[in-house]
Simulated assay, not measured.
Amino acid sequence: MRVLVGGGTGFVGVALTQLLRSRGHEVTHVSRHPGPDRISWDELSRSGLPPCDAAVNLAGENVLNPLRRWDDAFRRVVVTSRVETTKTLAKAIAEAERPLRAWVLVTGVGYYRPSPTAEYTEESPGGDFDFFSRLVSAWEAAAKIPGDGTRQAVVRSGVVLGKGGGAISQMLWPFRLGLGGPVGSGLQPFPWIHVRDVAGVVCHALETEGVHGVLNGVSPASSGTSNADFARELASALGRPALLPLPGWAVRGVFGSERAVMLLEGQRVAPKRTLESGYCFVYPDLPSALQDIVS
């Protein structure tokens, strides 16, 4: 199968590309600049889809970039990098001479309202209560194409953990130095997934006939994981204590109150339809995931 991957040069994109190629698929990336095995977004807009059987969009500016001030200009960048790239791909897919076999969009569990008690499945409501939930709604709406000739799926990803990138890349050194700990109260849910499983769920959605609609991209154990649990398990995997919490006021000072919600609050999310669809997680529990990452 020939797969077109938007935003495929990032952390998750590299893992997905490696997995797809290991399974015998050809991969072409859509990025800002053309190059070997890639085309630009401008080229896609002008000329339409290159030869492919399926498409994925992973594109999106890093919301939690501490070097970017959370202002209107950066909000527009965050929206455009997700919604407009998805619109571009969806339009090209809809106008293609023959339907693709599958079209998969990766969004986020920010669709669901943060809560210390509620547990969400793919059927749970959301998408209408703050900037990030409305962003996910607009993002997913942009992916919809008319007709049923192409299977369409959405993977709502949790916090992605893995070697060399993702959320954990900025946490490892403080924890290695014994300076790590929970964020804020530590009581907030921590919806996580190993990068191999994000790639695995996307690959599963691409390859498996009958898989469509929303799949929650979170570990089966994540609905019972708090931020303090994560800090404790990461410290244990490194043989260090986890005694120094990061105060909520410091998080809000760096990221602003709107972004800080992503770190200081959380959602209990279960991958109900993901498991029912037949996907088997490589890293279903936190200790095994963290041992792989820190080894």
Rank of each mutant, 00 (worst) to 15 (best):
P114C: 11
L286T: 01
P182S: 14
T107I: 10
S288A: 13
H29D: 07
G278C: 08
P284T: 04
R75D: 01
Q188C: 05
A235Q: 08
E97P: 06
L16V: 01
P34H: 12
P284C: 01
P36G: 11
L161Y: 11
A260C: 04
P191Q: 05
C52N: 02
Y111E: 10
H29I: 10
T150G: 14
D42Y: 08
A270P: 02
E265F: 03
R68A: 11
G224R: 00
R156L: 14
L19W: 00
V109E: 01
P220F: 05
R75S: 07
T117I: 00
S133H: 06
S31L: 03
L244E: 07
K91F: 00
A235V: 07
M171Y: 13
L67I: 00
P51D: 12
V78K: 07
F132Y: 12
V12Q: 06
L89E: 05
V160N: 00
P241Q: 10
L290S: 01
R76K: 15
L172E: 13
Y111K: 00
L264A: 12
R113Y: 02
A228N: 08
L135N: 13
P114T: 12
P36Q: 14
G162P: 10
V104C: 05
L16W: 05
Q18Y: 01
L16Q: 05
L238N: 15
L246G: 02
A59C: 09
G210H: 10
R46A: 15
V27L: 08
V159S: 09
V211F: 04
G248I: 14
W192A: 09
G213N: 09
L4R: 08
P34A: 03
L275I: 06
E207S: 04
P51V: 14
Y112K: 09
V63D: 04
G162A: 14
L290I: 03
L264E: 01
L246Q: 08
E265L: 03
A138Q: 14
T121D: 15
A59D: 02
G13F: 13
E119V: 15
R69K: 15
A138E: 13
E209I: 00
R151D: 13
P116S: 11
G127C: 04
C52P: 13
R23S: 07
S226N: 10
S124G: 11
V195L: 02
V77Y: 03
D292E: 12
Q267H: 03
P182R: 15
L206Q: 13
D229W: 07
G210V: 10
V294W: 08
E119N: 03
T9C: 01
V201L: 09
R82S: 08
W41I: 10
G24D: 11
A250F: 06
A96P: 05
S236I: 06
L172P: 12
A73L: 04
E207H: 01
S288C: 09
L16N: 03
P287D: 05
I39M: 05
V198E: 05
W103R: 01
T150F: 12
